[in-house]
């Protein structure tokens, strides 16, 4: 098989297209690169979806945690402690075992006049179940970042808003929120990188890969197990992730530039990548 044929056969293997059987012998570098790259689609899917939905949730949580009302603050504090205080690995396991325990036929919700059956089997699939865990997890970590940023919004900004007669929602939307984003953005960039790295845990925890459709690390592990040679498959994953990390830094840097565009050049915050892996 030439390399181009390999690419055609395995480029979308992780989504279930192309060759059904994984390569079994005579593993070439081309097969390594193609299949691991194919698995990377899942990492990007998990990371991008969790980041997008988690961002919205994190904003709500951060505001709730800063709220003076205990009914809002306490649940937010507990949610953040729960997801930041325990390993993501355990969260995956726990979520999977819980989803498996749900009745296969679905849950009946009686509404008086009619009964709705909520299907539950889709939750045990990685693309839904693991995504939910990742969303909640990244929401908790990002909420803590945004909460810190919210608390460091300069007093003067708030007083200026008061002077203009702004209050409530319009003050939040026009003054507080943009500043919160600007202050929290460098730390949020790290969290995003961190989240993409965490997606490699999905198929190593509770969630099984269905029909050998896994992520980049799943295929790398497949090759390393078959060839007893860790010196090829894992560096390929590493290289893919370095590229992915650089792409995230680039994208978030653009947003950071936009958030800081009204500031004089010497007071702008630069993005600094401080790695902190493993949750």
């Amino acid at each position: 098989m030439t390399c181009w044929e390999t690419v055609q056969a395995y480029a979308f293997r992780s989504l279930g297209y192309g060759e059904r059987l994984l390569p079994r012998e005579g593993f070439t570098i081309c097969e390594h690169v193609t299949l691991i790259g194919s698995g990377l689609i899942w990492n990007v899917y998990f990371g991008a979806c969790a980041l997008a939905i988690g961002f919205i949730l994190a904003n709500g949580l951060a505001v709730a945690k800063a709220s003076p009302v205990a009914v809002l603050r306490k649940p937010a504090e507990w949610f953040i402690f729960l997801f930041r205080g325990s390993p993501l690995f355990i969260q995956f396991f726990l979520a999977y075992e819980t989803f498996v325990l749900l009745p296969k036929a679905g849950i009946d919700i009686p509404l008086g006049f009619t009964t709705i059956t909520v299907a539950t089997s889709w939750l045990t699939k990685a693309q839904a179940g693991a995504l939910i865990v990742l969303i909640l997890n990244t929401a908790a970590y990002s909420a803590e970042i945004f909460y810190g940023a919210l608390r460091s919004v300069p007093r003067g900004d708030l007083e200026a808003a008061d002077a203009y007669g702004m209050s409530g929602w319009s003050r939040f939307r026009r003054i507080v929120w943009p500043t919160m984003m600007r202050l929290g953005w460098p730390a949020y960039t790290n969290e995003a990188i961190f989240l993409f790295h965490a997606t490699t845990l999905v198929f190593f925890s509770g969630f099984p890969a269905w029909r050998q459709q896994g992520d980049a690390l799943y295929y790398a592990n497949y090759f390393a197990d078959k060839t007893f040679n860790p010196f090829l498959a894992y560096p390929i994953v590493a290289a893919y992730f370095i590229v992915l990390t650089l792409a995230i830094i680039g994208l978030f840097g653009l947003i950071n530039r936009r958030l800081n565009r009204h500031l004089p050049a010497n007071t702008r915050q630069r993005l600094r990548y401080r790695p902190q892996l493993v949750r």
Binding site: T200, F204, A220, N221, F231, V237, F241, T245, P275, V278
Partner: peptide, 19 residues
């Protein structure tokens, strides 16, 4: 360690050290 998921290192080092 920057830019690479730590779990890759965990899987890699155990085999690499052993061999």
């Amino acid at each position: 360690v920057r830019g690479v998921p730590d779990i890759v290192f965990f899987l890699f080092f155990v085999i690499a050290l052993d061999q």
